[in-house]
Design a protein around this nucleic acid. Sequence first.
DNA 1: ATAGGGTTAG
Length: 679
Amino acid sequence: MLFYAFKTLSPASSPKPSSLLFSDLMLPVLSPMPSSHLHLLSPSSPKPLFRSFSSLRTPSQASTSVNNYNHLIQMLCKRGNLKQALDLLPHEPSPTQRTYEALILACVQRNSPGSAAVVHRHLSDDGFDQDPFISTKLVGMYSHFNALDDARKVFDKTSQKTIFLWNALLRALAVGDEGEEALLLFRDMVLVGIELDSCSYSFALKACVALRSCEVSAFERVREIHGHVLRHGFNSRVHVATTLVDCYAKLGCVSYARRLFDRMLARNVVSWSAMIACYAKSNNPFEALKLFEEMMVLEPDIEPNSVTMVSVLQACAGLAALGQGKIVHAYVLRRRLDSILSVVNALITMYVKCGTLVSARRVFDGMNGRRDVVSWNSMISGYGIHGFGTEAIQLYQEMLHDGIAPSTLTFLSILGACSHVKFVQQGKTLFESMIKEHGITPRAEHYACMVDLLGRAGQLDEAIKIIEEMRIEPGPTVWGSLLGACRIHGHVELAERACSHLFELEPMNAGNYVLLADIYAGAKMWEQMINVKKLLETRGLQKVPGCSWIEVNRKMHSFASVDFMDTHTEELHALLVQIVREMKGKGYIPNTDVVLYDLDQDEKEQILLGHSEKLAVAFGLINCRRGEVIRITKNLRLCEDCHSVTKFISKFARREILVRDVNRFHHFRDGVCSCSDYW
DNA sequence: ATAGGGTTAG
């Protein structure tokens, strides 16, 4: 039952205010310039810079101006002033290789495919289209624009194909989700006899992961390349070995990845971070934290970096390990990793998921102008899952006001927020504006949000209309939302319709069968219910066992739902029996409808008492100090009976209880829940 | 000249 106890990290002695560190990073980086022109580089006066250089081109200074032109273009590129740099292109003499390199880089940085075409045309005219160095850069650039055809054209055109050029195209195809194409190219490289380097292997392995659509063959391909790596002695290269670990983990072979990791000869902070990230991503936050602790203990010379800390924070968020998360926060401050945006964003999410919205907001407010769209999305979704719909919408409007363009995820967060508080009209309006004002094409997930919003609010006809009008195939998320709504409103026919799709789309998802059985039970259609349960069994599936956990003094205590009490839970059981007796005196009737077994009333009540959340609440009542919020996390949705019992306890034990279920937070205080019984 | 691991939703 005892999960872990951390001893390795101690709180920071004197954390530095984060704003100081941010300003360090904001200092502009200037490359060498003739000192007489330095004063022209102030950000407010880009134009005088240009004019002043034009005036330099007097006959007496012609020789300096030749160099200075290239220098100037490079300088403008570095400062992101691509337009002015392009204006200088037609001037004689033609730019050098380095100048074109700077121009290509600037096109990538400014995200400007239009400028890229201009640059490409110019360098071709100047004969650089056969320059393998420039071609490599061009392939990288087109890869950035996801213009893989253009990348390939550049590759084909260049007769002198260096390993850099091969690798650049290989990488472009792999990161462009063209795994099949990438692996064909890799095969060509082997056939042609190119001498592969460690980058080639890393990219080829990445390509296998991009094959995800067919995981079996992806696994085979990784094994093949793995064999190749071993035969050519590249397994001792840290990058290659790390990519292998990552690949196997991403294809679902986490334990095999771990074995590889354990056998690695030389491990750096990376390899460690990769393995920690694998656990954090594969829904195994506990293992992630354990491995992090191991790294801190066993490898004193390896210092965790921002990537490590993001994964560790993700793990804390997954576990809702607030105590641990705070220590990690202190460590982040001490190591000054809070200058890294992704780390700060991960901090926001950690506090949100640990139930301390106020701390999340404090971190967010401390970001003074350094917020990106991820920071906003994290905070907006935080308000959403805590049931603060109005605040979520308000923050969304502040975000627009700040000139940050909302992303597809912004709308998933904000629509989710509307759904939690039944803001049907606002949700509809936002969905419309997403399409019309922000030009975002809704994905299946957005439709799923709308179906959830309308369906849960009881507007099932509207929800169906949304599905029927969809221009894309409604995936499992959409039908799943509809099924969830049917459960709330006891709509059997629609549930059957949703399941006819779901059982085909995701036959191994036990949750769908359980929901349908639940809906049949609610309609007292026992025969149908038994049939669904049989179907579940014949497919070899099992209901996901309920599990709740609670952190007390930085130790995690987890509880599985049990059908009978054993010695470990005796004390908790006794407390619950006492509470229920009192509640019954005040009119509480156990909601045995949620028990889908064919048992008599007493037995059903026993099962209700064994629900993991009640055990965790009882444990919290005994072990948490008065005045302290009891924070519980649950792996499934909260059942009705646990919800009403927890409401009761919050009132009569005068305790604040915060429960995070799989969808949202429930804040119980004085007999009421923040979800207003709508969840 | 390329390269490994990470940030938001469900």
